[in-house]
Design a protein around this nucleic acid. Sequence first.
DNA 1: ACTCGTGCTTCCATTGGGTGGAAGCCGCGC
DNA 2: GCGCGGCTTCCACCCAATGGAAGCACGAGT
Lengths: 255, 255
Amino acid sequence: MTKAAAVVCGPSVAARVLAVLSSFDETHTALTLSDIARRSKLPLSTTHRLLAELERWQAVDRAEDGAYHIGRRLWQLGTLAPVQRELREVALPAMQDLFVATQENVTLAVLSGTSALYVERIHGKASVPVESRPGRPLPLHATGVGKVLLAHAQPGLVDACLSKLTKVTSFTIVDRERMCCELAAVRRNGYARSFEEMTPGVAAIAVPIFDPEGRVLAALGLVTRILRKDLVKFVPALRVAAATISRNVSHHRAG
Amino acid sequence: MTKAAAVVCGPSVAARVLAVLSSFDETHTALTLSDIARRSKLPLSTTHRLLAELERWQAVDRAEDGAYHIGRRLWQLGTLAPVQRELREVALPAMQDLFVATQENVTLAVLSGTSALYVERIHGKASVPVESRPGRPLPLHATGVGKVLLAHAQPGLVDACLSKLTKVTSFTIVDRERMCCELAAVRRNGYARSFEEMTPGVAAIAVPIFDPEGRVLAALGLVTRILRKDLVKFVPALRVAAATISRNVSHHRAG
DNA sequence: ACTCGTGCTTCCATTGGGTGGAAGCCGCGC
DNA sequence: GCGCGGCTTCCACCCAATGGAAGCACGAGT
């Protein structure tokens, strides 16, 4: 995640606590006291005191080598988030059925700001290795699930994305006009494809998961090697799984 | 989780922020402002201010009906915890293989204080419904995975548990002597069983997952209907999966 | 063995962010 | 129309937070 906390880090203690926690991200999961002080822009002694309280509450824990990690209590709190309980847990059985049927990476993502956020990924030994994991933000314009989410996003967000399309691979679509056509095709076809636009040698296909009001609440996708050129044949299975998830999410909320 | 924060809630702002977050638990995932003020024992205006900062940082979010939920940023932070990245994600493929082979609930748990903490559960439509989910604490003495963890726990912890064995079902072992024998059998056999001790009509079998130093870092189990009396036949498959997870966790840490 | 640099821990005089009761607003039920 | 409960905002007062400095521990280099 971006250092958004730097934006809100002010003189308040709560903001400082959050700045300390924001020091951790996808590529920084083990940090020393000095690391955290630097990244949160707080004095050493302040950082030390705040970490002591976070450690006491098990929001972080300190390994024998002195490095801090996110603690079990934050993990547990995280499991209470709607994205985990009302989406991920409900979606897991259908995702597994899809994995068994296809033996490929099965991905579930939601819109988060101007990124796609992986909620879950199921893969096996034979699946193409993909550098993704739950919690990780990914570009909307370069991934299958991202294109689905973007195609059904509010116009304001679409404009914001289209105004700063960046190349991830040489195949990534960065021309605004071409991306508009691509998103129109996604809406028309009811699925999105990505060919080596995010990762060389990798292709993806994704479909929307709707809520009862017809809004897109997530995207479900498959990620494969480009050798499998016939990805469109997976669309019916993806749609069945997406419909199952859709229905179960609605029941879950009502229950 | 228990209201542990009540223990640490003092005059410090950090403690208060954590008390607010601690208001959420397994059975309270949607809370009003007044709910949170009551549960954290803070005045309404203090609670209101702290929640505003948490909301600004997306640690919590507020639904249209005014209820607060755990926000996406806390979910993302939670995904950085070692239990998630170094255990759960590494274990998932092997757990799925086990699920495919058995079509039963596959569970992964770690020791957390004096409880077993579910890290992940894989199940399908045909699996016996089990009220468990990631993040949820469960008794050590009544579950398969719990007995494995208890059998290999430090003597101090074992004593603490044996001194307050409580009945969960009429089959739960609460006699200290009998539980000692049970744990000795678990160590001798290399697996644990539970027959309707946690849930009527439900049986479980579990094996340990070792770290390179030979310590138990987690337990892997299957949960089935008691109709399947021949659970011991699953032990070889459980051990294979556990060994795979063991190896992969070691490689993951080294990498 | 000694020196140096780095990381970390602890202290405490000073200060400014936090406090929480009260007042007021809003929505709902009777 | 009234009463009640939940929520939001205000502000005089106060105490928790601050962060530089001093000191400790440790590892590397000589």
